[in-house]
Deep mutational scan, measured.
Amino acid sequence: QEEEKEIKRLAKKFNASEEEARRAWKKAGGDPETAEKILKKKG
Rank of each mutant, 00 (worst) to 15 (best):
41 K>R: 13
16 A>D: 02
3 E>Q: 09
21 A>F: 02
2 E>L: 10
6 E>R: 06
3 E>M: 11
21 A>W: 02
30 G>D: 02
37 K>V: 07
23 R>V: 09
32 P>A: 11
19 E>V: 07
5 K>W: 12
5 K>L: 14
31 D>A: 04
17 S>Y: 03
18 E>A: 06
19 E>P: 04
1 Q>M: 14
36 E>W: 04
37 K>N: 11
25 W>R: 02
2 E>Y: 11
20 E>T: 07
39 L>P: 00
25 W>K: 01
18 E>P: 07
22 R>V: 04
8 K>F: 08
7 I>F: 03
15 N>Y: 06
21 A>L: 02
23 R>C: 15
12 K>N: 09
16 A>W: 03
17 S>H: 04
35 A>Q: 01
41 K>A: 15
42 K>N: 13
43 G>A: 12
28 A>N: 02
39 L>W: 01
30 G>H: 05
23 R>Q: 13
17 S>R: 04
11 A>D: 00
16 A>F: 07
23 R>K: 11
4 E>S: 07
12 K>Y: 09
10 L>T: 01
13 K>E: 06
19 E>C: 10
43 G>D: 10
40 K>H: 12
11 A>H: 02
22 R>K: 08
10 L>Q: 01
18 E>K: 05
31 D>L: 04
11 A>Q: 08
8 K>G: 05
22 R>D: 03
28 A>D: 01
11 A>C: 11
40 K>S: 14
43 G>T: 11
4 E>C: 10
28 A>W: 01
6 E>D: 05
39 L>K: 00
11 A>M: 15
5 K>E: 13
12 K>V: 10
26 K>M: 15
14 F>L: 05
7 I>A: 02
20 E>K: 04
27 K>I: 14
29 G>Y: 07
5 K>R: 13
16 A>S: 08
24 A>H: 02
34 T>F: 10
14 F>E: 02
24 A>Y: 02
4 E>V: 07
25 W>S: 02
8 K>N: 07
41 K>W: 15
43 G>N: 13
30 G>N: 04
19 E>M: 07
28 A>I: 01
7 I>Q: 02
40 K>C: 11
19 E>D: 12
22 R>L: 09
21 A>G: 02
36 E>F: 04
38 I>F: 09
43 G>Q: 14
2 E>A: 10
26 K>H: 13
3 E>T: 10
4 E>Y: 09
3 E>V: 10
16 A>G: 02
19 E>Y: 08
31 D>Y: 03
26 K>D: 13
9 R>I: 06
21 A>K: 00
3 E>D: 11
17 S>W: 02
14 F>N: 03
43 G>R: 15
2 E>G: 09
32 P>M: 12
37 K>Q: 11
1 Q>F: 14
30 G>R: 05
20 E>H: 04
1 Q>T: 12
10 L>R: 01
41 K>D: 14
4 E>L: 09
1 Q>W: 13
2 E>V: 09
23 R>P: 01
27 K>C: 15
6 E>F: 11
7 I>W: 07
15 N>G: 11
9 R>H: 05
3 E>N: 09
39 L>H: 00
34 T>K: 15
26 K>R: 14
30 G>I: 01
3 E>S: 09
7 I>E: 01
2 E>Q: 10
16 A>R: 09
25 W>T: 02
27 K>T: 12
41 K>I: 10
18 E>N: 06
38 I>Q: 03
10 L>Y: 02
8 K>W: 08
23 R>E: 15
10 L>K: 00
8 K>T: 08
15 N>H: 12
42 K>V: 13
28 A>G: 05
9 R>D: 05
40 K>G: 12
22 R>W: 10
12 K>C: 14
3 E>C: 12
28 A>Y: 01
5 K>Y: 12
15 N>M: 08
6 E>N: 08
20 E>G: 02
29 G>N: 11
33 E>H: 10
33 E>K: 12
34 T>D: 05
2 E>P: 08
5 K>T: 11
18 E>I: 15
14 F>G: 02
38 I>V: 04
29 G>R: 10
26 K>A: 13
3 E>H: 10
16 A>V: 15
31 D>R: 05
15 N>F: 07
7 I>L: 04
21 A>M: 03
43 G>C: 15
13 K>L: 11
25 W>L: 15
33 E>N: 09
17 S>G: 04
4 E>T: 07
39 L>A: 00
26 K>Q: 15
22 R>Y: 09
12 K>D: 07
15 N>T: 05
41 K>L: 15
22 R>P: 00
36 E>P: 01
25 W>F: 11
7 I>S: 01
26 K>V: 13
12 K>R: 12
10 L>M: 05
41 K>V: 10
39 L>S: 00
23 R>H: 12
21 A>T: 07
4 E>A: 09
42 K>S: 15
43 G>V: 13
15 N>V: 04
5 K>H: 10
35 A>I: 06
35 A>R: 01
26 K>S: 09
17 S>Q: 03
24 A>N: 00
21 A>I: 06
27 K>Y: 10
9 R>F: 06
32 P>S: 11
29 G>H: 10
15 N>A: 08
9 R>Y: 06
8 K>R: 12
9 R>A: 09
9 R>P: 01
16 A>M: 11
27 K>D: 15
37 K>D: 09
22 R>S: 05
21 A>H: 00
35 A>P: 00
18 E>H: 07
37 K>A: 14
6 E>W: 15
35 A>K: 00
23 R>A: 15
34 T>Q: 14
35 A>D: 00
3 E>W: 10
31 D>E: 05
40 K>A: 15
5 K>Q: 12
6 E>S: 07
21 A>Y: 01
30 G>M: 04
29 G>I: 04
8 K>A: 10
30 G>T: 02
3 E>Y: 12
28 A>Q: 00
22 R>F: 07
39 L>E: 00
33 E>F: 12
20 E>A: 08
40 K>N: 12
23 R>L: 13
16 A>L: 13
4 E>G: 06
13 K>P: 00
41 K>N: 14
35 A>S: 03
32 P>V: 14
19 E>K: 06
29 G>T: 04
12 K>M: 12
20 E>I: 05
42 K>R: 13
43 G>H: 14
13 K>I: 07
24 A>S: 03
4 E>F: 07
8 K>L: 12
24 A>E: 01
22 R>C: 09
40 K>W: 13
33 E>G: 08
38 I>W: 07
42 K>D: 12
4 E>R: 07
36 E>Y: 05
17 S>E: 03
29 G>E: 09
24 A>W: 02
19 E>W: 09
18 E>F: 14
35 A>T: 05
18 E>G: 03
22 R>Q: 05
7 I>N: 01
34 T>L: 15
35 A>E: 00
14 F>W: 11
24 A>I: 04
35 A>Y: 03
2 E>M: 10
14 F>Y: 15
20 E>Y: 04
32 P>L: 14
8 K>C: 11
6 E>T: 08
1 Q>Y: 12
21 A>D: 00
12 K>Q: 11
12 K>S: 09
5 K>F: 13
4 E>D: 11
41 K>S: 13
32 P>N: 05
31 D>V: 08
41 K>T: 12
33 E>L: 13
27 K>G: 07
32 P>R: 14
32 P>C: 11
1 Q>D: 14
39 L>G: 00
42 K>P: 08
32 P>I: 14
43 G>P: 11
10 L>P: 01
4 E>W: 09
4 E>Q: 08
25 W>V: 03
6 E>Q: 11
2 E>S: 11
13 K>V: 06
37 K>L: 10
4 E>I: 09
42 K>Y: 14
6 E>H: 10
5 K>G: 08
36 E>A: 13
1 Q>G: 12
30 G>V: 01
26 K>G: 09
17 S>D: 05
12 K>G: 05
29 G>Q: 10
38 I>R: 02
26 K>L: 15
14 F>A: 03
40 K>Q: 14
14 F>C: 14
4 E>K: 06
33 E>Q: 11
13 K>C: 07
22 R>M: 07
12 K>H: 09
40 K>L: 14
7 I>G: 01
24 A>T: 02
22 R>A: 07
10 L>H: 00
41 K>M: 15
5 K>C: 13
22 R>I: 05
11 A>K: 04
39 L>Y: 01
23 R>T: 10
9 R>Q: 06
41 K>H: 14
7 I>Y: 03
23 R>W: 15
16 A>E: 04
11 A>V: 07
8 K>P: 03
30 G>Q: 04
33 E>R: 11
33 E>W: 11
14 F>S: 02
19 E>G: 05
4 E>M: 10
30 G>L: 03
34 T>M: 15
5 K>P: 06
42 K>F: 14
10 L>I: 06
8 K>S: 09
5 K>N: 13
39 L>M: 09
27 K>M: 14
12 K>T: 08
26 K>W: 13
10 L>G: 00
31 D>S: 06
36 E>D: 04
9 R>K: 09
37 K>S: 09
28 A>T: 02
15 N>I: 03
17 S>T: 14
24 A>Q: 02
2 E>K: 08
15 N>D: 07
18 E>S: 04
13 K>S: 04
17 S>V: 03
6 E>P: 03
